[in-house]
Design a protein around this nucleic acid. Structure first.
Lengths: 349, 349
DNA sequence: CTCGCATCTGACAACGTTGTCCAGGCTCTA
DNA sequence: TAGAGCCTGGACAACGTTGTCAGATGCGAG
């Protein structure tokens, strides 16, 4: 080996700051490039003495393998992407964490991004993740057309949709039983004697909101109750609109004696509205909320298991990656009615 | 150009599934490789006609640039890493989201990982992120020795610590005023006439816990109150231990008339314990919690702004990246006392 | 008509790693 | 002692992109 290469570590050509490469390590240890690679990857075929020399060089130079190059060469990035609505929402934290744990168990990192419920941003994010060549993608849809992912899926990006179904493409989906949960929650109120029951939910273009509304309607229909239009508020996204909607159905003609709320944010606002009033109004909310048991009365909810959604989706994703081609499947997880008092109040007024 | 190359797209050599490369696009469009690169990156110097042909080829093949290769070549990944404790904790969701937003504004993606409060896992994660060559790292420390990051920082990885200071290295830190917040919270109780005040917090090896404890001690000392050992519980991590600690100081000799809780999880458990009792006990908690205003009484808290912590840290990080070398700085954000009732109860018992 | 200049294009190397393959040295046996 | 076989180590190409640089093309002016 010529003297010039042996001293390569003394004039590292910089890019990432001044990071040593395997070549630098090899030069310093006086071995070949591939030998360093073998040591770093724990491959067989290196004598203990050589290995020690290489390890020392790695230590001395502070070498750390450049995974970008590795990825380029190997074709797998050992990372998956998660596109969700808003990480600050307490529903998505546990979901994301669950996905992360499964990824970790498979040696993968998680890149996540928030779509802020904006279809364009969802697409931008998902495609950016694909450009990074994530091995797989877990998507909580904001939009309702995911054909833009077709080339990616064909190219081998494992993809699973969670919480809401994919739009206009055939893919794996993991959902909560939104319809059944809402129906049971409303039926619970009906069983307590309520007939005038309000529903406040998100825009029906969001699948979960539509399904929960359908559950509400079905429960009412099954009980032979006809629903007045003013009992239903759809698209109540901001706290102000939720508040107005609640007040309308509580104070209008034929006032409701119970309210079913379509998601955790709506529930919280409605709790506030009800707390200001003397007439007791029953409440069942979709999604569990922290401290719900400590309020007076405790808040009865239809709980879904966010962590289980994430875990199931991630496991499905790695099953796609590990092996064979699976036919797209729709997995539905059950919800659980948790009675704490607010849903058991009898009709009043 | 020979006919054979023009048809290169018909025999793509696979790796990432079957992804077309720039070479494939070039062959199909009948142009050179570099021209495709120029079009993809919106560089000047391509005639409209050529550009159109390239765009068509990109469209037809479903080409998407491989950012791994790009990263390898350019040396910047346009991604930053966030190591936090647990994404499922409602404190970290908004923090992570805030970091993400700043990253997005700088065109970067966010990779995050949960350390689960385990120093080894923190290190493993941080180094894995460095191997991915993230441009920067936001770390919420679990351990108290971060010398392992020294080579990385020297190599140019921008690094900011949040919520807790870095251990044994000199680096940027963004903190809440844990000491001042706790001191003020406890002083608030003292001002209401309390003398026997309990403190329940996390292990003092965690910086925030230690600082809050110090705030408690200082407030008591400033008021000339000597603290009994049994009024303090440190290292109460599980709900069970918090419960036991609370019961001990409530039922033992010299029972406390007020409790200061050191973080949101402790606060929630103590609320549960207090709700079971008839004797009113005052409570001030560190960290705000959702629905705190709806409980009876409302929960008085020392609130810190998780989103502001994240935002400030991320902005600092990109300032490091954008430009010059900055001397490490310690930024402290104020806390805010929010009175809601529980902290204003007079001493009883 | 030719020269010079500006504009557009493409060949080539490089980024840092891993897979392939072969060379050289060793041990063991005949 | 020679030959076979094994083990270790290294040279080289490839992954897909971008930066450099030089060549080609077209246009206007002399």
């Amino acid at each position: 080996m010529p003297e010039t290469t042996r001293r390569a570590d003394q004039h590292l050509t910089s890019r990432y700051g001044n990071r040593p490469t395997m070549k630098d390590v090899a030069a310093r240890a006086g071995v070949g490039l591939k030998t360093v690679s073998r040591v770093v990857n724990g491959e067989a075929g290196v004598t203990p003495d050589t290995e020690r020399r290489v390890q020392e060089a790695i230590e001395a130079l502070g070498f750390r393998r450049n995974d970008s190059a590795r990825v380029l060469r190997k074709g797998r990035t050992a990372s998956i992407g998660l596109v969700l609505e808003d990480l600050a929402d307490p529903f998505y934290g546990p979901l994301s964490r669950a996905v992360e744990e499964v990824a970790r168990a498979h040696g993968a990192l998680l890149i996540n991004g928030s779509s802020a419920e904006d279809p364009d941003r969802e697409q931008e994010l998902a495609l950016a993740l694909c450009a990074r060549r994530v091995d797989g993608l877990v998507v909580i849809p904001a939009g309702d057309d995911h054909r833009y992912l077709e080339p990616e899926i064909r190219a081998g990006v494992a993809t699973v949709f969670v919480d809401r179904p994919a739009g206009r493409i055939d893919a794996d989906v993991v959902l909560s039983d939104n319809f059944g949960g809402a129906r049971d929650g409303v039926a619970h109120l009906i069983a307590r004697g309520h007939r005038r029951i309000g529903f406040i939910g998100d825009m029906p273009r969001i699948h979960t909101a539509a399904e929960r509304l359908r559950g509400y309607r079905t429960a009412m229909e099954d009980a032979g109750i006809s629903v007045a239009d003013r009992w239903m508020s759809l698209g109540a996204t901001s706290p102000e609109r939720v508040r107005r909607a609640a007040e309308d159905m509580l104070d209008g003609p034929d006032p409701v004696t119970a309210v079913f709320t379509g998601n955790n944010r709506v529930t919280v606002t409605v709790i506030r509205v009800l707390a200001e009033r003397s007439r007791p109004v029953a409440l069942v909310g979709f999604d569990d909320i922290e401290l719900a048991d400590l309020l007076q009365p405790g808040v009865t909810v239809v709980a879904q298991d966010a962590a289980a959604l994430g875990r199931t989706a991630a496991e499905r994703l790695f099953r796609q990656l590990d092996g064979s081609l699976l036919a797209p499947e729709r997995i539905e997880l059950p919800t659980r009615l948790i009675t704490r008092g607010s849903g058991e109040l009898p009709p009043a007024g």
